[in-house]
Every structure is written in structure tokens, then in C-alpha cells.
């Protein structure tokens, strides 16, 4: 029942302060609020090499009510950066899905920066497991 392949132990995981610094660099030092942004990810990864994640930000995407970008971080990978999504008025909706690598159980973090300068954050723990038993 054992499946430990594929996750290759890399350099030491990103330190919490490194992740924190990346967030602050992105927000310009502003502490993000909760709300507006939702991050969807599986509770348990089926495959740590390809974990689907979706972000959605509540916004009309017109005029001042606009999402500029969303930063995705993972606090237990060798480097915390995953991707930055950039939206425009032609995006229609501030929503995007991609697939990412997770070296081990950790939190995935999404931070949204709005046109008016406000910042919002959501976080989800994704478990990376050996698996293999069942009812």
C-alpha cells in the first residue's frame, strides 16, 4: 500500500518569515484582511506533483472595483513562490485555476491586491500523504 514516490526531499522548506516577507513585498507592507478572496484546494493531495488550486475574488471587475493581481505562495516548499495571476477589466471575473507542486503537507496561501490598494488573503492546508488503505 505504500506510495512514497515523487516528492523528492529538496532543500530545507521555506521559512515562515520568508513567506511572510514575500507577502509584505507584494502588499507594500500592508497586512492582508480576510474575506473577498477564496482559495479552493483539495484537503488531501492525490499527487503532490500536481495539486489543483483555484482562486476567486469577489469583484465587479469594472471601474475602481478591480482585482489587480493574486499572489500564490506555499509555506512548506523549498521556495515559497508559486505564481502571480494578473487580471484586467477584460478578465470579466477574477478567478483562475492552475496545478502546483507540494513537497509535503503545508499551507497554500493566496493574497489579492485590489485597485484601491486593499489586500485580502485566504489560506488552505493541503495534506500530502502516503495513502493506500480503505473500506
Amino acid at each position: 500500500f505504500i506510495a512514497m514516490a515523487g516528492l523528492g526531499v529538496g532543500p530545507a522548506a521555506a521559512a515562515a518569515e520568508d513567506t511572510e516577507k514575500k507577502i509584505m513585498d507584494f502588499t507594500g507592507g500592508k497586512a492582508p484582511e480576510s474575506g473577498k478572496i477564496s482559495l479552493t484546494a483539495p484537503e488531501i493531495a492525490e499527487n503532490g506533483n500536481t495539486v489543483p488550486i483555484t482562486v476567486e475574488v469577489e469583484s465587479a471587475m469594472t471601474g475602481d472595483d478591480m482585482v489587480q493581481s493574486v499572489l500564490i505562495l506555499a509555506d512548506g516548499n523549498p521556495n515559497p513562490e508559486v505564481a502571480t495571476f494578473n487580471f484586467t477589466a477584460l478578465s470579466g471575473t477574477a478567478a483562475a485555476t492552475t496545478r502546483m507542486r507540494l513537497a509535503k503537507t503545508q499551507s497554500v496561501i493566496a493574497v489579492a491586491k485590489m485597485a484601491d490598494g486593499s489586500v485580502f488573503m485566504d489560506k488552505k492546508e493541503v495534506k500530502v500523504t502516503i495513502g493506500g488503505c480503505g473500506g
Binding site: 500536481t50 508559486v82 494578473n86
Partner: peptide, 8 residues
């Protein structure tokens, strides 16, 4: 999207 090596 600006992409880092953690993308699959």
C-alpha cells in the same frame, strides 16, 4: 501569470 518552479 508570472510562474515559479512550483507550478506543475
Amino acid at each position: 501569470c508570472d510562474i515559479d518552479p512550483a507550478i506543475s
